Amino acid sequence: MMMKSFVPLLIAGVSAATLVSPAEAQRRDEHREVFDAMRSGKLLPVREIENRVLPSMHGAQYLGFDFDSGAGIFTLKFLRNGNVIWVEVDGHSGQIIGRSGR
């Protein structure tokens, strides 16, 4: 009798563990879009963009990037002397199009 009530609970627990949050699902979709666009040649690979920007960021710690799929813009994030620096890069051309912070 105890086993019969345990099985549905176990199934419910496993099902809940496999659900992803809407934010995580959106992040996965964005990563897929970026990957597909890079594979098709519409966007430069992230590594190429990083290789263009990182050498100019002397003394800054690279924190990672965000991607705006609608605009095709990568925003690389850095930290230097307690200040956050954002560098916006056109994902199609690799050109730096904006920078904020010091």
Rank of each mutant, 00 (worst) to 15 (best):
G64Y: 02
F65T: 03
V46A: 12
N51S: 11
R28M: 14
A60Q: 03
R39P: 01
V34A: 09
M1K: 08
A37W: 07
S5E: 12
R28N: 13
P45I: 03
V53Y: 03
D66W: 06
R27D: 10
M1H: 09
S5F: 13
G41C: 06
S56P: 02
S15E: 01
G41L: 10
N51T: 08
P8W: 08
S21K: 08
N51P: 00
L19Q: 12
L44S: 00
R28S: 13
V46W: 00
E48T: 12
L44H: 01
A60Y: 01
E30L: 15
P8K: 05
M2Y: 12
S40P: 00
P45A: 09
P55M: 07
R52F: 04
D36C: 04
V20R: 10
V46Y: 04
F6K: 11
P22L: 08
L63K: 13
S56N: 10
K4L: 12
G13R: 06
F6T: 10
Y62F: 15
V20W: 07
Y62V: 02
Q61Y: 02
S5R: 11
P22V: 05
S40F: 09
G41K: 07
V14A: 15
A17I: 06
A12I: 13
A60K: 02
E48K: 07
D36M: 11
S56G: 12
M57Q: 13
A12G: 09
V7L: 15
N51R: 14
F65M: 05
R27T: 11
D29Y: 12
P22K: 07
E30H: 12
N51F: 06
P45M: 09
A16R: 04
H58N: 12
A17M: 14
A16K: 03
E24G: 03
R32P: 00
V7E: 02
Y62M: 05
D66Y: 03
H31M: 15
R52P: 00
Q61A: 11
G41E: 03
D29N: 10
V14N: 02
T18N: 10
R27H: 11
Q26C: 05
G59I: 04
M38S: 09
V14M: 14
V20D: 08
L44K: 02
V20S: 15
D66G: 08
M1R: 09
I11M: 10
K42S: 08
V53F: 02
E24F: 06
F35D: 13
H31D: 14
V20G: 03
L54A: 01
P45Q: 07
Y62R: 00
L43Y: 06
Q61R: 11
A37D: 10
L9Q: 12
E33S: 10
M3R: 15
K4T: 11
R28L: 15
P8F: 08
L54N: 09
L43K: 01
A60D: 01
L43D: 00
E24H: 06
I49F: 00
L54D: 04
R52H: 04
L43G: 00
I49E: 00
L63D: 10
M3V: 15
F35G: 07
E33I: 13
A37L: 14
A25R: 10
L9D: 08
V53T: 01
R39F: 13
V34C: 01
S15N: 07
F6Y: 09
